Amino acid sequence: MKKPKFGYGWLIKWILAAILIAAGILMKIYDEEVVYATTGIAIVIFSLLRVVPLLKTLKKEVLRTINLIEIIFDTIMGGVMVYVVFSGKATEAFWLGLYGYLLAVFFYARGLIFFLSLFYWGEKSEGMKFWFHIVCLTIGTAIFVLAVQAVDIISTLGWIVLFISVGGAVYLGVDGFGGYRKYRENSKALNETKEKKKKAPVEKGLPQPIPEEKEEKETYIN
């Protein structure tokens, strides 16, 4: 009988679910600082992690150059966002207004570069990626219009992130519940196996054959 395997992924998922909810709540309470910082860090990570795989797989030099320029620009933009937060300027009117334009440029540039590489330089792509960049262009345009109209984008993003965080936490919680249930079943199976071993008789050695007694012939005296 195989020994049950114990996994603790459910615990990590529950911890991440709690962190997600806490992060979502903090982003709503401290709109400007947290949203600014989160956006900046996300852009920097997204940009830096793309560098090596992207430049190695692009075949044309012009595409490598354009994408490298985009990555450098995005990294600088994300760094500026993080700097604004840690310098305590995130609540200033200038930076609040600039946030929408920076975000719009990020999304629009990503979509535009993708479609330029697709139609002008013959870069092939899958359907999901195509529609994703359509969404990027749409989001970039929408954010730009909202920024021009001086709409409070950060507050809106705070609500969106809160809903996403709660949704992600629910998913991780349910998934973790399934993992925990499996963990308990394995624990139960392990205990039952131990009980069976305790109840089973312990054989110290193999049973030895019992020697047959020889019948002695009786002698009769006539």
Rank of each mutant, 00 (worst) to 15 (best):
K5R: 11
W10F: 15
W10P: 00
L16F: 14
A18I: 13
A22G: 02
I25F: 02
Y30C: 06
Y30D: 13
E33G: 10
E33T: 11
G40W: 01
I41V: 12
V44C: 10
L48D: 05
K56E: 10
E61W: 07
L63A: 07
R64S: 05
N67K: 03
I69F: 13
I72H: 05
D74R: 06
T75D: 07
G79Q: 08
V80T: 10
V82K: 03
V82M: 06
V84N: 03
S87E: 09
G88R: 06
A93N: 06
W95V: 05
G97H: 14
Y101C: 00
L102D: 06
V105W: 04
A109W: 01
A109K: 07
G111C: 02
L112P: 00
L118F: 14
Y120R: 12
W121A: 08
E123F: 03
E123S: 04
K124T: 11
F132S: 10
F132V: 10
H133M: 08
H133D: 04
I134R: 07
T138H: 05
G140P: 00
A142I: 12
I143S: 01
F144E: 01
V145H: 03
V145T: 05
Q149R: 09
T156Y: 15
G158C: 00
V161E: 02
I164Q: 06
S165C: 13
V170G: 08
G178M: 07
Y180N: 08
Y183A: 08
Y183F: 15
E185M: 12
S187Y: 08
L190W: 14
E192P: 00
E192I: 03
V202K: 12
E203A: 14
K204C: 06
G205R: 12
P209F: 05
P211L: 07
K214Y: 09
E215W: 09
K217L: 11
N222Y: 09
